[in-house]
């Protein structure tokens, strides 16, 4: 019978497609970057050496090239304080904006989940709607709002709150505003989907057993929403660490974030190996939160079964 064999082949093909996708679009580029991070910077085309060419290189030549690979780029990451301060500052900005975001997004998600059922799709739509406009355009819009002659300063001056414009653009404050604005849906949506499916009778049971409204929130609602909190926090924190556009457009010269440092290495200094080293190190740093996030998701799926 050919049928079971055919079915097995089909299954193989189906599972192979996503793996093939991952290999071509993730693993191969990753190894290219990894290799470049161990290369030497050159003023040439491409701007690094050695360049392997498996078609023309002989065995000896390949071995020579292999031994010319170096860990200098990684040593520099440790020795030059610009990198460590970039990483720390990125982690700090991403971490503190994640915490601030939680305080902003939780009440929003809670309000959405408590709203009448017929309103909820509209409210979700309103959270997602900004995504319909290009990210870059929305960040530029913040320049128009926050600059010295911008909407905010004009409005405050008109109201008589301030005499002369306050400097918000090109400061870390603007970076925080940009991150909080841009990543808000990533925090609101997981929280909302968690809070929305919570059984109301749990809150009623808590009240019935002697809890006040606020007590019921802290003892029942909040602990049960923790998986949503964790998911939201990592969905904000992970991309915010590597954020480049927001610090570049809204931040000032004193705003250092690792994404910006990497960009400068790559385009201003044309030092591809150093930039690659920065990227690989960032990936390793983010591995821990990504793994916590994945474990949380897996636990959620298991509980949902």
């Amino acid at each position: 019978m050919a049928n079971p064999l055919q079915a097995q082949n089909r299954r193989w093909i189906l599972t192979a497609i996503p793996y093939l996708w991952m290999v071509i679009f993730f693993l191969v580029p990753f190894f290219i970057v990894l290799k470049i991070s161990f290369s030497n910077s050159e003023i040439a085309q491409p701007p690094y050496s050695p360049v392997f060419d498996f078609l023309t290189d002989g065995w000896d030549e390949s071995l020579d090239k292999l031994t010319s690979l170096t860990t200098d780029n990684y040593l520099r990451l440790i020795q030059d304080s610009i990198y460590s301060s970039s990483y720390l500052s990125s982690l700090w900005i991403a971490g503190s904006s994640t915490v601030m975001m939680l305080f902003i997004a939780y009440p929003i998600a809670y309000g959405m989940a408590r709203a009448p059922k017929s309103w909820r799709p509209t409210l979700v739509m309103m959270v997602i709607l900004p995504f319909w406009t290009s990210f870059l355009i929305r960040v530029y819009a913040w320049i128009a709002i926050l600059s010295e002659e911008g909407l905010l300063n004009s409005a405050l001056a008109w109201l008589g709150v301030i005499d002369e414009p306050i400097q918000i653009l090109s400061t870390n404050t603007a970076v925080y505003i940009g991150i909080l604005y841009s990543y808000l849906p990533f925090m609101v949506l997981p929280l909302y989907s968690n809070l929305e499916k919570m059984d109301d009778s749990l809150i009623e049971a808590a009240k019935d057993l002697g809890c006040t409204q606020i007590g019921a929130f802290w003892r029942v609602t909040f602990p049960l929403s923790l998986p949503g909190v964790i998911a939201g926090c990592f969905l904000v924190f992970i991309p915010a660490v590597g954020e480049f556009v927001i610090p570049d457009l809204l931040g000032g010269s004193d705003t250092i974030m690792i994404g910006k440092t990497m960009w400068e290495e790559f385009f201003n200094n044309r030092d591809w190996p150093a930039a690659s080293g920065v990227a690989i190190a960032l990936l390793i740093i983010l591995m821990i939160p990504i793994m916590i996030f994945q474990a949380n998701e897996a636990r959620q799926q298991e509980a949902g079964r």
Partner: peptide, 20 residues
């Protein structure tokens, strides 16, 4: 009188046990 101050307790249809 709010629910938490009433001398009654309720057993819910869904049981409403706290899953955590």
């Amino acid at each position: 009188t709010p629910p938490h101050k009433r001398p009654v307790n309720m057993m819910f249809q869904s049981y409403a046990l706290f899953p955590h």
